[in-house]
Amino acid sequence: MTPVDQVHGLSPQVMYEQFWLKEVVHRRKMRGVKAAVGLVVGVALAYRFNLSAPILGLLCGLLVGAADAFWTWREYDATAVWRGRRRGETITGRLLRRRLRRAGYHILDGRAIPGKASIDHLVIGPGGVWVVDNEAWHPETEIARYGDRLFLGEKYGTKTAKALVEVSESLAEVLSRESGIPVTIEPLLAVHGGQLRRSVTAEGLTLLKPRLVARWIKDGPRADFDDAQVEVLARTAARVLRRMS
């Protein structure tokens, strides 16, 4: 059986994991080379500044090797949601609660708008209201804006953006009507995997890494609700939005 036959029919996620495992030996060899280079650099610096060559060389080698191991693990761990090993909404929800609750924000997870689509998170606080959804893409998928268009790899991201924008608009209408407080909702998409430096805003949607969502919300308020209004909006949302099982 040829290598092509062995991977034929497998999902991209399974193929990614198989190739990752096959490269373990190569990565270890390269890590050893990098550590050796770090050792040499450390010895050279020791002689240059009249320090202990063995200690500094060993320290530099260990630091380089550890840094390479950490960076490699971090790249692999970033694909966990895409590979189905972790749930994106769990990761993002934990980050939102940890960083926003003390600032007076309410986070409602897993809600469905009557007659409309479901949302992963609804954030309500002094600065406004946000819908936060989660999505995962292949680690090589470039997420970018060209002109006014959103691109997900080689494909347009219009369908993804439009769906979340429409959900946000529908929810804003419901909350405004039921609470009596005019509300505008900004849609955000937490991106797990893919190639995205920090954030991209296009076609009415902002895409960013999960660890940056809370900061985006706190740094960019869209309203100025007092505590009473925040409480009314949170209670209204909890009442009119069906909890997902």
Rank of each mutant, 00 (worst) to 15 (best):
V4C: 09
V4Y: 08
Q6S: 02
V7S: 07
V7A: 08
H8N: 04
G9P: 03
S11Y: 05
Q13S: 02
E17A: 09
Q18H: 05
K34V: 15
V37R: 04
Y47P: 03
P54N: 02
G57Q: 11
G57D: 03
L63M: 15
V64E: 10
A69L: 13
A69D: 11
W73E: 02
R83I: 11
G84Q: 10
R85P: 07
R87V: 12
E89K: 14
E89S: 14
G93Q: 04
R94L: 02
L95S: 09
L100N: 13
G104C: 09
H106E: 01
H106I: 07
I107N: 06
K116N: 12
A117I: 10
D120F: 07
L122W: 09
G125H: 12
G127R: 01
G127Q: 01
G128R: 00
G128F: 00
W130C: 04
D133F: 00
P139G: 04
E140C: 12
I143T: 13
Y146G: 10
R149N: 10
L150W: 07
T158E: 10
K159P: 03
T160L: 13
A161T: 12
A161R: 03
L164P: 03
V174N: 14
R177F: 02
S179W: 00
I181R: 07
E186K: 05
L189E: 06
L189Y: 10
G194Y: 03
V200E: 11
T201F: 04
P210C: 07
A214C: 03
A223M: 06
D224N: 15
D227R: 08
V232Q: 02
A234Q: 11
R235S: 08
R235T: 10
A238D: 14
R242C: 00
M244T: 06
M244I: 01
M244V: 04
